[in-house]
Design a protein around this nucleic acid. Structure first.
Lengths: 205, 205, 205, 205
DNA sequence: GATGAATGAGCGTTCATTCAT
DNA sequence: GATGAATGAACGCTCATTCAT
């Protein structure tokens, strides 16, 4: 059908814009990027951007929210595929790190985005990001609760521990983004698992 | 002496501006704050701000860097006062949380600032923030190294573990800033220590 | 014949566009109406409008000029049908008011158009409107001249008096357009005739 | 006092901008004038215009409303100075014509403005213009009522007659603005008075 | 030194017009 | 012929910075 092809084309172009925008926003930050720049980079005229997005803010928000959804879906799929609690946690971390590796540009933005969430502007986006963050932590929390219930984990405050695991992974992500290294970030999974499960104390002493 | 009094006056006014700027930047973010707003809030004329700071960017950078220095100094003092490794780590966490509690406004900025550090603008500030971050992690790393050497901690990759501890504390900070609560954040110290030292695994099983 | 049918079709569509355009321009004014809006309202594609009109300005001008011609013709016909001067003047006023009543939307534009004629843009349109205005006033003037010649009217400056009659009618039109009323505007004819013929002075005193 | 001089300066500059804007708007119409043009003509920077006016619309509205107020005041003063009804009406017409002569540029705009008042944009300005128009007509109406009461005028519908007188004057104004003539428009006063009082009918026949 | 009015480059956004399909 | 997505010049407006007072 004609209309179908149209829509496919539309989505294709839209995605192309978002891809370029991601790179540029990642490098320079929301306020230092102009619509003209995005147009130039994506090979469209300035006016054309407005056929795909209502405004600069809409373009930015769309890019972030859609990527977040992708990430959420990817992670949940991996986690649900795992059977026991330990496996789920490992899958969670691995999936997160994989996503980071494949979307480094986006994460540079996303990490900023979460901080921007602390300010008053772009309220809609911020609220969605915060909601997404809480969702995420709650998702982790439920895994931990299951782990405590079945005795694999000791009784720790689940909410705090979930947040801790989330930020442990984030810590590795930030280090990786800050120091250009060729090593795959996924190799850090075992370290996170080790620290999160065992802590640093030496019991052998 | 006349010149001394002048300088004291100067520093006093400068600090007053930074104090107001901190509040405003915290609430609205760098790009949504105007020099006129800062002037208004601090009771100076717009032009006067330029006697204390070269530019808006300079004002912003100065505020952040000076607060970081304060925080660094405060933390190091507390840590150095502690005697053994365990005590140093507890002191480190407690000092950081205390600083967060006393400087919530600043931390809202700082968390954003660290993310901004991932982009290309404000190079000077970003580099200094990254340097400060690395300094901080290295400082923690040295404590951990000492802990491993004396057998209190098990042999974990020190750099990664230092970063992990740093971000564990950060995780608690973000949660606290995101959800307005009247509980003191310092009370979270024991949780961080517990997780970091012991992990979440249940060894009793 | 084929070509004829084509032309009929063409003119039919063209008229449909003008009809919608009249409504929209009337409500929002030339500069607040977009070609997209006119296309939408008339059920054509944007590009199709350009097969009927060279430009937005051409569309606007065409609509106005054609309506003016219609009005002129209608009025002249009515006036010529009347026999004596008094009858001609009454016919003139009545015809004008009837046209206003049937073309309220257009008159909202036309009144604006006449003022636009005082500025420098849309020179072609403006010149034609001014020409039309002068034609109109001259047409009235000739009636008045005849009236003076045959002694029905006293010796007043004909040009000024013609303009006065024109604007007297206009005054009633504006009042009627400004205050939404259900009374037919045509009922005001007698008032205009009365004032124009007799003035307001009380000779009985 | 310092502040006083400041304010005088401010008002002086503001008036200078309005004066230039009047000329330009008069020649090209609201939508064909750019802020850059007004800035250029008045010798200020673009940004400076915004210290005197909130927006382009505000600049335009201010210019019109302030002139209207001036005109209203001037006319009412002249009218009130006259003693009997005939004198008041003559004063009214003379004052209006004088104002037109001194403010030709403004009237080119104002005549357009009143028509714009028939569309939906610039609601606030339009409402004020319409209000002003009604005020004006009512002011005239009261004079006519007094004239009827004291028997100088015959019993005509006062509202319609007031509007008629208003537009009679307007008719002369438009003719004068449309045809560049060196004759003073004020000389047309007697014609207006004559037509309005006596009509065109020849009673001698 | 202190002021804040003046500056103008630079932004996001609109929309008449074109032209490949 | 009919379409409507693509275009980009042009607009109103902001705000960091300067400098005459």
């Amino acid at each position: 059908m004609r209309a179908e092809r149209k829509e496919r084309e539309f989505n294709f172009r839209r995605a192309a814009i978002l891809e370029q925008a991601e790179k540029i926003f990642s490098a320079k930050g929301y306020y230092n990027v102009t619509m003209a720049e995005i147009a130039e980079a994506s090979g469209f005229a300035i006016g054309s951007l407005y056929q795909f997005f209502e405004s600069k803010e809409d373009l930015y928000s769309s890019m972030i929210l859609e990527k977040i959804d992708l990430m959420s879906a990817a992670i949940r799929q991996e986690v649900n595929a795992a059977k026991d609690v330990t496996g789920k946690i490992e899958a969670l971390i691995a999936a997160q790190l994989q996503f980071v590796e494949k979307n480094a540009d986006f994460f540079r933005i996303f990490l900023r985005g979460q901080s921007d969430a602390l300010s008053e502007t772009m309220t809609a986006l911020n609220q969605k990001i915060i909601d997404g963050y809480f969702d995420n932590v709650m998702f982790i929390e439920n895994i931990l609760k299951a782990g405590i219930k079945c005795g694999v984990l000791r009784k720790v405050p689940t909410r705090d521990a979930a947040s801790a695991l989330f930020h442990l992974t984030r810590s590795v992500t930030i280090e990786w983004l800050l120091k250009p290294t060729k090593d795959s970030i996924v190799s850090k999974k075992d370290f996170i698992v080790d620290i999160f499960f065992n802590g640093v104390k030496n019991y052998d002493q």
